[in-house]
């Protein structure tokens, strides 16, 4: 059976912490970091990266375009 797996990279220095990606993610991959970046915002990061399906929802709602999405098809026995 083929399964889709994804991964995201978030540019934490450009993230403004608006949290729109957190609500857009259907599999609750993204969370807000307790730390702050250089601008003083709590940045988004992949809190649960194993669940990512690479659906791109987080990346297309991000106003600052800080998220890159990678996706592969893996075969599961």
């Amino acid at each position: 059976m083929a399964k889709v797996k994804g991964a995201i990279i978030i540019d934490k220095e450009k993230c403004k912490g608006c949290e729109l990606c957190v609500v857009a993610c259907p599999t609750n991959v993204i969370g807000m970091a307790p730390d702050v970046n250089g601008k003083g915002y709590h940045f988004a990061y992949a809190i649960n990266p194993e669940s990512c399906t690479g659906c791109e929802n987080c990346a297309i709602v991000c106003p600052d375009g800080v998220i890159s999405v990678y996706r592969v098809k893996v075969t599961v026995e």
Partner: peptide
């Protein structure tokens, strides 16, 4: 997964 050939979306 994070490889150039798997990139599906970026700015």
């Amino acid at each position: 997964i994070i490889k150039e050939e798997n990139l599906v979306y970026s700015k």
